[in-house]
C-alpha cells in the first residue's frame, strides 16, 4: 500500500473515532428532543457538570468550599483524600438523576405547552445556571480527570501498520489514541444497551410511546412526568460518559461545555428525532472534519477549519434533505 493511502485510512479512522465523541453528545440531545420536544442546549454543560462532580467526589472536595470560606473566613478544602472510581461514578450518576428530577420539578413542569423557542431559551438559562453552580460548587480551575482509562497513541496499532507501507518509504505507522478506541467501545455498549432497553423493557416501550405521541401515551396511562425525569436522567448519564471521555482527553474546564456546539451540526445532519441519525451524523461529521482539515485546510494556510466546517457540511446537506438524514418527514398543512 502506498503511504498516501495509509495516511488516508489513518485520517478516516481518527475521524470516525472523534465522530463517536460527537455522537455521544448528540445522543443526549436526541433523546430529550424526542421525548419532551425540548431542544436541550444545556447538554454540553451537563457533561461539564458531571465531569466536575466526578472529579469533586474523587478528590473529596467540599462542595461550595470557595463560597463558604469567603463568607465565613473558614478554610475547608477536602473531606478525604480519594475515593474509588467505581463509587465516585456511581455517586455522580445519583447526582445526575437528582438533577434531572430537580429540572423536571422546577423548570419543565412550569413550561408545558409553551413555544419551542421559549423552552429552548429556558435551557440556555439552565446552561448558564448549571455552569455557575458547577463553578461555585467545585471551583473553576482546570482539573485532571483520571478514571483509569488509558490514553496516548496505540503502540500495538502503530507496530501492526508499519509494515504495510512499501519497502523503503519512511512510514511510521498509524497514530490512534487508545482513549478514542475506548470511547468507541463504550459508546457502542451504550447504544446497544439503550436500544435493548427501549425495545425489550416495559419502561422502554413507554419511552417510545411518549416519543411517538404525547397525548396518546397519556391516554393509555403513561405518566409523562416520570418519563421525562427518566429521559433527562438518561441524558444526564450519557452526558456523564461524554464528560468522562472529553474530560480525560483535555482536562475538566469550561471549554468542555462547548462540545454542545460541536454536536449541533451532527444533529441537523442526522435529524433531531433519530438515534441512528445522531450516530451516523456524528461519524460523517467526524470524518468530514478530519479530511477537510488535512486535504482542504492546506489551501487556506490559516487552518482551524474545524470551527465551522461541520456547520457548512450540515448546511449543504440540509439544502437537499431539510429534515436531515433520518429525521421524520416534515409534513406541513395550513
Amino acid at each position: 500500500m502506498s503511504v498516501e493511502l495509509l495516511n488516508f485510512i489513518e485520517t478516516v479512522l481518527n475521524g470516525l473515532m472523534s465522530g463517536v465523541m460527537y455522537s455521544l453528545v448528540a445522543l443526549g440531545f436526541v433523546l430529550i428532543f424526542k421525548a419532551s420536544g425540548v431542544f436541550n442546549f444545556a447538554q454540553g454543560v451537563f457533561a461539564l457538570f458531571a465531569a466536575l462532580t466526578l472529579v469533586g467526589y474523587q478528590t473529596g472536595q467540599v462542595p461550595f468550599a470557595h463560597l463558604i470560606n469567603e463568607l465565613f473566613g473558614t478554610n475547608y478544602h477536602n473531606w478525604y483524600a480519594s475515593m474509588p472510581n467505581f463509587l465516585a461514578i456511581l455517586l455522580t450518576m445519583v447526582t445526575m438523576i437528582a438533577l434531572a428530577w430537580i429540572i423536571e420539578r422546577l423548570v419543565l413542569k412550569h413550561l408545558v405547552n409553551q413555544d419551542p423557542i421559549i423552552l429552548f431559551m429556558a435551557t440556555i438559562g439552565l446552561a448558564f445556571a448549571l455552569e455557575g453552580v458547577g463553578d461555585l460548587m467545585w471551583g473553576s480551575d482546570v482539573k485532571v480527570l483520571d478514571v483509569g482509562i488509558p490514553s496516548g497513541g496505540s503502540i500495538w496499532l502503530e507496530e501492526a501498520t508499519i509494515g504495510l507501507a512499501a519497502e523503503g518509504s519512511d512510514y511510521y505507522g498509524m497514530y490512534v489514541d487508545v482513549l478514542n478506541i475506548w470511547a468507541t467501545v463504550i459508546a457502542v455498549i451504550l447504544v446497544v444497551s439503550l436500544a435493548l432497553f427501549s425495545q425489550y423493557t416495559k419502561t422502554g416501550r413507554a419511552l417510545r410511546a411518549v416519543a411517538d405521541d404525547h397525548q396518546a401515551a397519556l391516554s393509555v396511562g403513561i405518566s409523562l412526568r416520570s418519563i421525562w425525569i427518566l429521559v433527562w436522567a438518561i441524558s444526564g448519564f450519557i452526558a456523564m460518559v461524554a464528560g468522562i471521555m472529553w474530560g480525560t482527553e483535555s482536562g475538566v474546564q469550561f471549554s468542555l461545555s462547548l462540545i454542545a456546539l460541536k454536536a449541533l451540526p451532527v444533529l441537523i445532519l442526522g435529524g433531531f428525532t433519530s438515534i441512528p441519525g445522531a450516530i451516523i451524523g456524528g461519524l460523517l461529521i467526524g470524518v468530514g472534519e478530519k479530511l477537510a482539515e488535512i486535504y482542504i485546510g492546506g489551501y487556506f494556510e490559516t487552518g482551524a477549519l474545524e470551527n465551522w466546517f461541520a456547520y457548512v457540511m450540515a448546511l449543504v446537506f440540509l439544502l437537499f434533505r431539510p429534515q436531515g438524514l433520518f429525521g421524520d418527514k416534515i409534513i406541513e398543512r395550513v
Partner: peptide, 20 residues
C-alpha cells in the same frame, strides 16, 4: 471570581424564572 460565578448562576435562574 466567586461573584462572577454567582452572577452566571443568578443570570441563568432569572432567565428561567422570567420565562416561567
Amino acid at each position: 471570581v466567586t461573584a462572577k460565578h454567582f452572577e452566571i448562576t443568578i443570570w441563568g435562574l432569572l432567565m428561567i424564572v422570567f420565562l416561567i
